[in-house]
Each structure stands twice: as C-alpha cells, then as structure tokens.
C-alpha cells in the first residue's frame, strides 16, 4: 500500500514526461495542467463535469479533466489542446473548426476540439450528423456554435479518412 506521503506521479503530457511531486492530493488533472504546468488551454467552465470545457485525452480517451484526480493518473499519457498542432500546422479538427466557424468566444473550444478528436478516434459516429451531435453533447457551447461544430467534426473526419465503424449491438 502506498501512503499519502508519497504523492509522486509521472505523466506524459503532449509527449513530454513530467515527474511531479504533488504537495496536495486534491489537485485535479485540470488544475495540475492549468495552475502547475502552465498549460492553460484546457478551460474550467464548471469544474463539475457538466460542461466539457476541460476535455483532454487520457490514454487516448476523452475525459473531463476537472473530475480526474491527478495523483490517480500516475503513468498516464495526456494530450491537451496545446499538443495537437505541429507548429503552425493545425490538426485537421482545428482547421475545420476555423473553416466552419465552430466557435464564437472560444472558451469552450479547446474542450470541443479535444472531444471531437476523441470522438473521431472512437469511431462510433461515422458520417451520421445525428450521431455526431449526440456524441458531442457533453460539450456545452453557450454561444450556440453547434451547427459549425457538427459540420467541422464531419468535415475533419472525412479529411482524416477515418474508417467508419459500426456500432456495437
């Protein structure tokens, strides 16, 4: 059993390994990224898993980083919005969000984009806009950019040539 005094953890964030000695077990992944690693792209909209603005990939899966305790994620690979583009070369999802005006204020956008990347990776929605809407419903956008968001996801997915997979059941 590991006692609480040893709150060391190792995370890969956007390909860079971080060995972190946490002084406090309460730190969420979101607060670790924003307040301790200086990665402020992931946003805190509700801090309760209800808005999706904090969405990041943990081991390739989209999750709400506000409801993940950092210390529990020892060994995980994290991808944030800062890890998508290669310099000026945007990830296809990022480019599609610009092209389809899939945002207004931009605050929910990092979460929307990470969610979209996760969704495409999951491969369950295919090219069905209704499935994309359903799968993106964990990301609130108060500005109401949903039309552009759905179009951007479909467009990016088509450009990425993702194979459409069937549903379970």
């Amino acid at each position: 059993m590991e006692a609480s005094s040893s709150l060391s953890l190792s995370l890969s964030v956007n390909g860079t390994r971080h060995d972190i000695a946490l002084d406090d077990p309460r730190v969420t992944l979101l607060d670790l990224l924003r307040e301790r690693l200086g990665l402020t792209g992931s946003k805190k909209g509700c801090d309760r898993g209800q808005c999706g603005a904090c969405t990041v990939l943990v081991n390739g899966r989209r999750v709400n980083s506000c409801l993940s305790l950092a210390v529990s994620l020892d060994g995980a690979e994290i991808t944030t919005i800062e890890g998508l583009a290669q310099g000026d070369a945007l990830h296809p999802v990022q480019a599609a969000f610009i092209a389809h005006d899939g945002f207004q204020c931009g605050f929910c956008t990092p979460g929307q984009i990470m969610s979209a990347v996760g969704l495409i990776r999951e491969g369950h929605a295919g090219d069905d806009p209704e499935r994309v809407r359903e799968a993106m419903s964990g990301n609130l956008c108060r500005c109401g950019a949903y039309i552009g968001i759905t179009q951007a996801v479909l467009d990016a997915q088509a450009k990425m040539g993702t194979e459409q997979q069937g549903e379970a059941a």
Binding site: G49, T55, V58, V63, L67, L119, G138, A168, A169
Partner: peptide, 22 residues
C-alpha cells in the same frame, strides 16, 4: 452489447461521452 442490448443502450444514454469514458 449483442447479448444485452438494453444495457448497452442504457449506458449510452447516460451522462456524456467523456463521463462514460471515465
């Protein structure tokens, strides 16, 4: 999901994709 489609359907109607992933 093939054996228990109503369970899969219930799971997929709960929360959001992010929460279901976690």
């Amino acid at each position: 999901a093939r054996a228990h489609p109503s369970v899969a359907e219930a799971l997929l109607s709960g929360a959001s994709a992010q929460l279901r992933n976690a």
